[in-house]
Design a protein around this nucleic acid. Structure first.
Lengths: 107, 107
DNA sequence: ACGAACGGTAAGCTACGACTAACGTAATTG
DNA sequence: CAATTACGTTAGTCGTAGCTTACCGTTCGT
């Protein structure tokens, strides 16, 4: 048995190329070849990235003849958004005493 | 001159250890040593991760005597959240024709 | 002022992830 | 029924991210 870990949504978006793919798919659904010629990488590379994004639940695919149309999955995006929301809320919660510490270093 | 690329927020959260640090800091601000003993890595490793998170604008730090208190930056988290929101909105926009394609493959 | 606590930096090693090339498969076209 | 198009998968190479160890500057305590 292989020690196989299903890709997390954050891990998936951790790669800049995959973020570019996500941006492309946010505009409109596309086939693999379309994505490949819109990006500076080969088609197999796109295929591998799409596999990761699919495992993370960020995209869904649909067979259309010989081609395969990938589209962004709103539910997957929403899941990450909700997680950020909880971070954000808890951070604001622990942020109440910030007025008492004017020596904050932002840079 | 060095080709230095300031870390993106997504790149920063792409690492599971850094996500663990973010979760810790979401609870309450902590010093570097505190984070190190709460995680299975050494203190220098934590320091390097905090540097990345700081460059990404996800945390801010404040000197407190010999110690250095790191806290989560709500603005940085909100920035990522907003970006996900636009993806989400555009994905929903291009999702109107989904009823016409019942052969969606989710898994 | 000396020693200890705290933390950032440099050097070096290792492991994993991203990419290409080559191959195999399913579907369309002539 | 070839030939072509469109994808996925595998094998293999290469760069780099993440970790530890060692070292150095700062700040607090006694």
């Amino acid at each position: 048995m292989e020690t196989y870990r299903p890709a997390d949504g954050w891990d998936a978006l951790g790669d800049p190329t995959r973020r570019a793919i996500v941006e492309c798919l946010a505009e409109r659904p596309r086939a693999v070849g379309e994505l490949a010629e819109a990006l500076p990488i080969s088609r197999p590379a796109v295929s591998q990235h799409l596999k990761v994004l699919k495992e993370a639940g960020l995209v869904t695919d649909r067979a259309a003849g010989a081609r395969r149309i990938y589209r962004l999955n709103p539910a997957g995006v929403a899941a990450l958004r909700d997680q950020l929301d909880t971070y954000w809320a808890r951070a604001l919660d622990a942020f109440q005493d910030v007025a008492g510490h004017p020596d904050e270093e932002k840079s």
